[in-house]
């Protein structure tokens, strides 16, 4: 995520607040400007279209409100996923906005923001996977480590936050089972 100006942070924070109060469909730039304490044209100047504003807001929410503690091992990921599901559950409106934004199928909507980090961890601990195995593991873990999991488990199965966290972490453990016996011994440094 590129560094934001103070004005941009104020705009994104105001928009996120208003989404929680009013829903994402009913918030005009005028209302955002008033909440952020700036002129309406400043909103336009920073985010010319509604989609620009939405992409920036979703990225900001992911990086702040939904930020997770960094995993130091790929095998720690189920813990991070479990915590993330509770965080989504505490902010349902924002969770839906982030989930929808990731599914727009366009440039700028990055559906797997944690992918590079997962690849780093996997390459350090389990470097012997062939490219297809590696891709399969990363794809499955990226998918599980996302707000889409929370949305789907809640909507399709009526699960509460505890059940969602359990089922998502369980699936991540299942994916990790396939590489548990492939870990490279630690090098003394």
């Amino acid at each position: 995520m590129t560094a934001l100006s103070g004005t941009q942070t104020a705009i994104l924070g105001a928009y996120a607040e208003l989404i929680e109060e009013l829903g994402s469909d009913d918030v005009s730039n005028r209302v955002i400007a008033r909440r952020a304490g700036i002129a309406e044209r400043t909103v336009f100047r920073n985010y010319p279209t509604r989609v620009d504003l939405l992409l920036a807001t979703a990225a900001w929410i992911e990086a702040t409100l939904f930020a997770r503690e960094e995993s130091h091992s790929i095998f720690d990921l189920p813990l991070a996923i479990r915590e993330a599901m509770h965080r989504y559950d505490a902010r349902p409106e924002l969770a839906h906005v982030v989930a929808e934004t990731a599914m727009r199928g366009m440039n700028g909507a990055s559906p797997s923001p944690g992918r590079a980090h997962l690849e780093q961890l996997l390459d350090a601990e389990v470097p012997s996977l062939d490219p297809v195995q590696r891709r399969t593991v990363i794809a499955a873990l990226s998918h599980l480590d996302s707000v889409g999991t929370w949305v789907t488990y809640r909507r399709e199965f009526g699960m509460d936050s505890r059940d969602i966290a359990d089922a998502a972490a369980w699936a991540a453990e299942a994916v990790l089972d396939s590489i548990r016996d492939r870990v490279t011994p630690r090098q003394a440094t």
Partner: peptide, 13 residues
């Protein structure tokens, strides 16, 4: 059963 069903559902989405 819920864990498996939810996983299969989500990977087939």
């Amino acid at each position: 059963r819920r864990r498996v069903a939810a996983s299969l559902r989500y990977f087939s989405s």
